[in-house]
Simulated assay, not measured.
Amino acid sequence: MKKISEKPASKLEKELVALEAMRDEDIDLSDAPEETDWSAAERGKFYRPVKEQVTLRLDADVLHWFKQSGKGYQTRINAALRRFVEADDRNAR
């Protein structure tokens, strides 16, 4: 009867097993010092809200006003609507 041999672990798997076996204080973190000054951090820099495609009827003059600034008019309309929503007292609850 043939013996089933296990697939040899990859180099990364071996390193992970060895790292897991180490005590926290024995791990060398000198190349990645702990960050303690967060004063320059930007909140929400990589946040991207979920977008939903809709059909919306706008007055022609309003749409023209947003389009006259060029590409990105839909983003500008969204930003204007967001400012309105954030300024609305009813949403401050």
Rank of each mutant, 00 (worst) to 15 (best):
M22K: 12
D59H: 09
A40P: 01
R76M: 09
P49G: 02
A60T: 08
K51F: 00
E20A: 10
T36Y: 06
S5P: 00
S10G: 12
G72E: 08
D28R: 03
E35P: 04
F46E: 07
E6L: 15
I77E: 03
H64W: 13
S30Q: 08
L29N: 12
V85I: 14
A32T: 11
Q68R: 12
L58S: 03
E35R: 09
L58F: 09
S69P: 08
K71G: 06
A32P: 00
F46C: 02
R48H: 07
S5G: 11
K11I: 00
V54H: 05
D88W: 10
E86G: 00
L19P: 00
R83K: 13
P49Q: 01
E15M: 14
L81D: 05
I27W: 06
F66P: 01
K67P: 07
M22Q: 10
R93S: 01
E25G: 04
R43C: 06
E25R: 07
D31Y: 10
Q68A: 15
N91I: 05
L19H: 00
T75S: 15
H64K: 15
E52G: 02
K71P: 05
T75L: 12
D31E: 14
I4L: 10
R57N: 09
K67R: 14
V17A: 15
R48T: 03
W65Y: 11
E86N: 11
Y73P: 02
E34R: 09
L16Y: 13
V17L: 10
P33C: 04
V54W: 04
W38Q: 01
